[in-house]
Design a protein around this nucleic acid. Structure first.
Lengths: 211, 211
DNA sequence: CATCATACTACATCATCATGTAACGTTACG
DNA sequence: CGTAACGTTACATGATGATGTAGTATGATG
């Protein structure tokens, strides 16, 4: 017989937790090895219950579910975590995905789908509803040509080289002009980016994907 | 009666294209308004056929499907594009998702799922298999605590402030030490990051997620 | 044609940075 | 208890950066 998949659930709503567990217990591939109403000392909880998958609520007393997720991925990165929450805002989805959640489901998701999602995650997939998936993907659909500050071609080139760590002198040599020309461009760049130093400019360029 | 969803398909394999169309035509919510064996002049094709959704192969003669996707998102960002391909490598998935694909399916996907995926996309969702979704998500799961260079707590603090654009003087004021102390820390940081200037350090810190 | 934006060069000046050397205190460790 | 790692301050010096002013040239725009 196939080895069962063990899961734990962290969820402060007793009714929801109990009813979900009751349903999942009907599935003969799944077995609950822990049920908690908060995520305190989540690492200890996992070490004692040894689950394959963690179902994690977000809004819980004492310890936020995303914080718990981060702790898990810090200490036990191989554990799969599926967020199970009422939130579907970009912030929470983004946080959870960045922190390494393998799934993100809403609580109104059918228990059938939740069971299926656990299987999906165990098979190396990610489990989320299409709408959540869309939100997740939107985060790294680069607004790529974010040339809002209206940098000219030369300025972009100079900024790029600056970001790559080149000094004025090196940039000048690279694009074959005098160093004063680089000063000129850099000043213009600073004005447009509203900064006053190279580190600021570099940080802004990278973060705003200007290069 | 509900308005039908119009789609076009760009796919160089005639057999696959024809058989998929034949199946999708059975679905009374879907109607094919264009069928092409390459993605040349994709904008023109779309303007004349006016689809809601584009099914796009990647490996096609003349014009790569991802290039076509980029053109579509550039000119007609509201059109939904679902990639339909044999490739499931990180590169292609990443490229497609970044370029704004609303879905990414493998050609061995059941036609039933493909039809369902079109509906999903029309309802504001993203359509992909769990395994593809996982690959997509992995791209922006930050390896967050990348403190490989072994920076001390103070050094991390100083680096963070430097990245935020503060001058030595400002950093010194912020953590209430003399400017020479900042010089000392910065030097250490440069040594550990193997850089020799603030812009380099900032770029490295952000890219390697040291802060 | 006049004007504007862009690009390049030059010169000047003060501020800031990069680097080295050196000394002192604290905490942790074998 | 000596040593090592870390944090702190100090001093010095040459290099680089930040900012301003100013002149020239070119292509585009109206």
């Amino acid at each position: 017989m196939r080895k069962k998949t063990c899961y734990i659930i962290c969820e402060d709503n007793n009714d929801y937790r109990e009813s979900l567990m009751a349903f999942l217990d009907e599935d003969d591939e799944l077995v609950c090895c822990g049920s908690f109403e908060n995520a305190e000392n989540i690492i200890n909880k996992i070490n004692t219950s040894q689950p394959d998958v963690v179902l994690m609520d977000i809004d819980m007393p004492v310890k936020n579910g995303i914080e718990a997720l981060k702790e898990i991925k810090q200490s036990l990165p191989e554990k799969e975590v599926i967020m199970l929450t009422v939130f579907e805002d970009r912030e929470n989805v983004f946080e959870a995905v960045c922190a390494g959640a393998s799934g993100y489901l809403l609580k109104n998701t059918s228990p059938v789908i939740i069971a299926e999602s656990i299987r999906v995650v165990m098979n190396g997939g990610a489990a989320m509803t299409p709408v959540i998936a869309r939100k997740a993907l939107q985060f790294f659909q680069k607004p790529l040509k974010n040339n809002a500050p209206g940098l000219t071609a030369q300025e972009q080139q100079v900024l790029k080289l600056l970001v790559n760590g080149l000094s004025y002198k090196m940039i000048a040599a690279k694009i074959d002009v005098v160093i004063d020309t680089i000063r000129y461009h850099i000043k213009k760049i600073y004005d447009k980016l509203h900064v006053h130093s190279a580190p600021e400019a570099v940080a802004k360029a990278i973060r705003d994907k200007l290069v």
